[in-house]
Simulated assay, not measured.
Amino acid sequence: MLIQFTDFLPVPKPDLTKVKFNIRAGTGGPEAWDLLLADDPEDWLNMNRHRERHQNNNLGPAQFLLSFAQYYPYGPQYFIFGGFFQVSAVVPELIGGPGYALAPLDEHSEYIKRLIVKLERPVGRDLYLRWYETLQGSKLNPAVYELAPDTKLGPFPGFQNVRLKHHELQRIIANDEPNWKDALSSVKGVYVIADLSSGQLYVGSASGEAGGLWQRWSSYANLGNLTGGNRGLENLRAELGGGHIVDNFQYSILEIFDPKTKAETILLRESFWKLALGSRVHGMNRN
């Protein structure tokens, strides 16, 4: 039996709390889940701060807000928790923009990007913003569907959109995330590692026969390894420690290749990218 929404997420003032089920930012805009996932929280906050001309679509006299983003990997009736906020109206009144100030509260913060609720029906234009005290038993009637052990990362975004912090890479490898593993195992490639604290780059490649990018990046995710045996990265770890890598490294893909591509072809492209990005002269490559 599923746990009821209000039993799992009690609030201090039910009669002054609204619940917002965000889908996307405007017509044809980015998905709410993508905004919640982004490094910069402002776009996610602005989605929840927005004040429209139609009063029924606004926070009105609410003093608190429970916010959710549609978790589209599961389907239209699933929403993931995005935070609990104290609400105050912006004065003078602003229509068509951030008309409310939202102050994040610690209460329920441990469930952000982990708690998924399921609604009995998809959210429509007239249902996405509801009063907390009338929500349970309504047409939406949400129930707790899943509490993930760690932050949800979402589906594989496409090779051209991969941008992983080290802690995200660790989690993907440790959890054997199926869609990430399927994608990264299916290709060889040239990749770039950025040290976000200094801007220095390291260009590498997965040119072996088995495992593709997944196998290569697995060594970087291993806290007992972190460098994949690369001399430039080994030097950095010796100088600044493994914690520097975990805190500051980001992984992206420059080019992908069919698994049957000869290693020589991929190594030539790796050399091209080292020259193009200056990673030998100004970065962390040592060959």
Rank of each mutant, 00 (worst) to 15 (best):
M1Q: 08
M1G: 07
V11C: 03
L16H: 15
V19E: 02
V19A: 05
I23R: 01
R24A: 13
G28F: 06
W33I: 01
D39S: 14
N46G: 01
N48R: 07
R49F: 04
E52M: 12
E52I: 06
R53T: 12
F64E: 01
Q70D: 14
Q77P: 08
Y78W: 13
Y78K: 09
Y78C: 09
F81W: 02
G83T: 04
F84T: 04
F85L: 15
A89G: 15
A89C: 15
V90S: 04
P98T: 14
A103W: 05
P104W: 12
D106M: 13
D106C: 11
D106R: 15
E107M: 05
K113M: 04
R114S: 15
L119P: 03
E120D: 13
V123P: 00
L127V: 02
S138T: 08
Y145N: 12
E146Y: 07
L147E: 11
F156E: 07
P157G: 10
G158Q: 12
F159V: 00
N161W: 14
N161D: 15
V162Q: 01
L164Q: 02
R171N: 08
N179Q: 12
G189S: 11
V192D: 00
D195S: 10
S198L: 07
Q200C: 03
S205W: 00
S205N: 10
S207T: 11
E209H: 05
G211D: 11
L213G: 00
L213E: 04
Q215A: 14
R216T: 09
N222R: 11
L223H: 12
L226Y: 07
L226R: 03
G228L: 09
G228H: 10
R231V: 08
G232A: 11
E234M: 14
L236C: 11
G241S: 14
G243K: 09
V246F: 05
D247I: 01
D247C: 05
S252H: 06
I256M: 03
P259H: 03
T265L: 11
T265A: 14
T265K: 13
R269A: 15
E270C: 08
W273F: 14
K274E: 06
K274L: 05
R280P: 08
R280Y: 11
V281K: 05
R286A: 12
